[in-house]
């Protein structure tokens, strides 16, 4: 009897010979890469020019024309730890949840306010402060290959009734505690009546944050 895996292997080996030639793609990638880099430098230069102008105006207004000394120090407000912890938990959640035959939705709504129980209404739940915009942007960028995150103030998914709109996936994150080993809850509503919640143990190991396990949701313990 023939083996199915041998047939699959032979089929793939045969068909791979029909793959397109590499040279044109290499040329396009390297050319496009150079164009994007030039655009990037132009954008940086433009931003720097605008920033310099704003700083100059600010110094002029607040200190007057004779003021001296440094114009000020910019502070990076991105909380790298928050970005990393939310990103790894959210990625694990999106990849491992059962979204049906279509896999991870192309677009996922994420509420900008984390919540004590990631939005689940047991034992009372309290919304936290909104996740800062730069943190949201960085999380979106890290997950860009998986899906598009659309940050919203309010969960847009209908919880009951019927609608002709396609199903939307809405995610709420849990609040973060301090420390190098924290629980990160993530919940989702999808369609009308599909909702689930998971709490991940996220740890700092050898300089990077990793999901190392799961835990009972905060509100159930």
């Amino acid at each position: 009897m023939n083996r199915l895996d041998a047939l699959v292997r032979d089929t793939l080996d045969d068909r791979a010979t029909g793959a397109p030639a590499a040279a044109p793609v290499i040329s396009r990638v390297l050319a496009d890469r150079s164009r994007r880099r030039r655009r990037g430098w132009l954008a940086v230069a433009a931003t720097a020019a605008v920033t310099a102008a704003v700083v100059a105006v600010g110094v002029g207004v607040t200190r007057g024309p004779d003021a001296g000394g440094p114009a000020g120090v910019t502070t990076d407000t991105t909380d790298e730890r928050t970005v990393a912890r939310y990103s790894v938990a959210l990625e694990r959640f999106l990849r491992t949840s059962d979204w049906g035959a279509g896999g991870v939705p192309d677009e996922v709504y994420v509420t900008i306010r984390p919540d004590t129980h990631a939005g689940w209404d047991f034992n009372g739940h309290v919304a936290g402060d909104p996740i800062p915009a730069d943190v949201r942007d960085e999380i979106s960028e890290r997950l860009a290959d998986l899906t598009h995150l659309n940050w919203v103030v309010k969960d847009p998914t209908p919880k009951s009734g019927t609608t002709s709109e396609p199903a939307k996936a809405a995610v709420t994150l849990g609040l973060l505690a301090d420390g190098d080993k924290v629980n990160v809850s993530v919940s989702a509503f999808y369609g009308f009546d599909n909702g689930w919640l998971q709490t991940y143990v996220v740890e700092l190991q050898h300089g990077s944050w990793k999901v190392t396990g799961t835990d009972a949701p905060t509100g159930l313990t």
């Binding site: 793939l12 068909r15 791979a16 029909g18 793959a19 397109p20 590499a22 793609v25 290499i26």
Partner: peptide, 11 residues
């Protein structure tokens, strides 16, 4: 690696 990636993508 482009050639190898193209074969993978094609399959």
């Amino acid at each position: 690696r482009t050639g190898s990636l193209l074969r993978l993508a094609y399959l």
